[in-house]
Design a protein around this nucleic acid. Sequence first.
DNA 1: GGCGGTTTGTTGTACGGCTGAACTATTGCC
DNA 2: GGCAATAGTTCAGCCGTACAACAAACCGCC
Lengths: 413, 413
Amino acid sequence: MTAEPTTTQRTTGAPPGGSSASRQHTLRERNLRLVAKAIYDAAAGTSGPPDAVPPSRADVAAATGLTRATVSTLVDHLVAARLITELPPAAAQRAGRPAVPLVPAARTVVGLGLEVNVDYLGVRALDLAGQTVADVVEQGAFHDSEPATVLGRLGTLAAEVVELLQSDGMRVAGARLALPGLVDVRTGELEVAPNLGWSSLDPVPLLSLASLPVHVANEAKLAALAELAGEVPDSFLYVSGDVGIGAGIVVDRGLFLAERGWNGEVGHVVVDPAGPRCSCGAHGCLEQYAGKEAVLRAAGLPLDAPLRSLLAALEADDDAARAALHRAGRALGSALADFVNLTGVSTVVLGGVYAELEPWLRDDVVAVLRERVLASPFAEPDVRAARAGQHAALTGGAREVLREVVADPAAWV
Amino acid sequence: MTAEPTTTQRTTGAPPGGSSASRQHTLRERNLRLVAKAIYDAAAGTSGPPDAVPPSRADVAAATGLTRATVSTLVDHLVAARLITELPPAAAQRAGRPAVPLVPAARTVVGLGLEVNVDYLGVRALDLAGQTVADVVEQGAFHDSEPATVLGRLGTLAAEVVELLQSDGMRVAGARLALPGLVDVRTGELEVAPNLGWSSLDPVPLLSLASLPVHVANEAKLAALAELAGEVPDSFLYVSGDVGIGAGIVVDRGLFLAERGWNGEVGHVVVDPAGPRCSCGAHGCLEQYAGKEAVLRAAGLPLDAPLRSLLAALEADDDAARAALHRAGRALGSALADFVNLTGVSTVVLGGVYAELEPWLRDDVVAVLRERVLASPFAEPDVRAARAGQHAALTGGAREVLREVVADPAAWV
DNA sequence: GGCGGTTTGTTGTACGGCTGAACTATTGCC
DNA sequence: GGCAATAGTTCAGCCGTACAACAAACCGCC
């Protein structure tokens, strides 16, 4: 008899009703979720490449353990709610009545990702099929900006997008607002966002988006969720390099958010107490070695240099640039070793500027992890570059909204 | 509109059936759990002091949202299964028919905690009422011991305890084996336990406990769960000082166990890369400052000195001892600051030898946490001593087994 | 090209479990 | 002793799933 991973998980989007009375309709809700999730996951290709052929009612019945009769009625409800679409039966190669392929509906229900960051703000809408149906990004300089003005502008953009989508017959399920700062996951308030110069405010009302449920989250954490669109383990640490260094802890495909969700502050892990003083008051924080500005400075580039000039220097084998990334990689490895040792999550995804710098960082990070992670002899740490592309938090936020739709389809039937 | 903590949690003891087909009997199972948990929690006094008077069927109905009719039949089942006991009606002060108080049954179903540690092995049995019904601890020296011999002896002790309990009419629900090493939570195998000199083995068969489900876990993690018996936040970091330094992450009253459960390795967070070399190969690990041996050495005591001689020196205001604890406290604070920053859990419980040393550690630990925890201006970190007493892992293991019984009472009706 | 074999999806009955309302049981208060 | 109040029980009704039989649509093969 062995220990099973008898574990619940604290991540985004717990199915509701875990600890409230179960009535007859609870069965319906739970089984609707089960069926919706089966079809959604098969289409998204949760593991491996997307199945060549979408599942039929019979497939869903086999996968869930429900009878075909029950699945049939549930699917009918989901189709009526426009969450699921029936495709024309494919030419069958087997004997028997051809199956009706079921896929998540396109352009019916969408989730919205919103973001304010230092140099841009944006709105992105995704549908259940995973397609981007709207994408608006405005460049800007929001360092020390006025929250009401910036969030008001973002709200206007979002309202325009919502208007457009609704006139196309789509329903907007909700929105996630990504901010580069400390967001209290319980209240949705922003405690502080150093790079915006914002503090102690409730951002949602400033958007003026009436009748649209908006949740707030940290930018790196939503960006982490965007990685779930691709092939990635169920649990990983996402580390996003930028002016600051943000992180998200993904466990079993959901965000780990204990207490107020203030985790992953890897930028201020002390790499060397004899190192340079950091803005946080401590000495030798990771940011002083692997923060964007520290790397540019060490590479002999101006602090406002674009990333591509650093990449150019690296590709040209510039010694200072190479040395800067070697130093950053060792420091990053050291801080990540603590991160892995403390959380027990062994895969690290490098996001933000680290994604593009990964070829020059990876070897050093891996080497230090191998030295310093205690479990590395039994579970080799894995380091990889993020793949979600530009403005990943917008994608992650929109995906998160849709995940909630799939997790509670009963609200839509 | 604000962000809710829309989070599932990965901790010990997920209610089963989260993602499988819901049939009619699923309702029964879920509601049985709900009722059992309501009665159990009220008795255990999950928050605050135990309610003066245990809940009645009507109270449970009000608390759960189920009707009195449903609660009545469910309670009848639980009473028949001897999981719940009806107390004689208390003298009613209100008008109306007096309520029948419901409490967890004493001495009917018990959970077993087992442990092998460096200097002892033990068996403890707890019943649903929270009482210890059996407690056997054998001192010994198990450094570099033979696993088969030691676990065989523990198995014999456990079998004797089981025999005794069963002859008294009790049913043993299961057992948890605590080991001071790296335990793979998925397979139950022990990868390595440095202080026992054990590695790569499956401990459960060596116990030779037929027909008793035994799960294996890390000792510090089970000790952390023992704290849940007292007044403690729902989430906290438990750090246990001993020869090594172990830790457990408790989130929403359950263990956080991502992947294989290898988290909380705080003993090898690097406090100062210029510090002394550690057995793990790195320099300046926390253990070199706050490990039991490092503290004793710094205090000028022999490495095998008992804890009470250190406590005596501290109470006598011995300079070397005080300085040793100051140094340990600063180092511990630094490593815990990383732990708090990375996990977002703001309460630290000091267990193992740290529990008794807490008066001399606390101020330094708190001071460093205040400096280094980024969220400390918004959520003051809390540091407290563990209260579970000797051999906490035995208590935690037994409690964990009982928590599973309460989480799935349907298996017992 | 019709017929058996095969797989899909639907229909109708049975059953389990919760609800709501009425009912019984037991007390305090006037 | 009667009335109000609270606890617990009984029973018809409803809801959602299972099970089994059935209809639909295809293949292959003689």
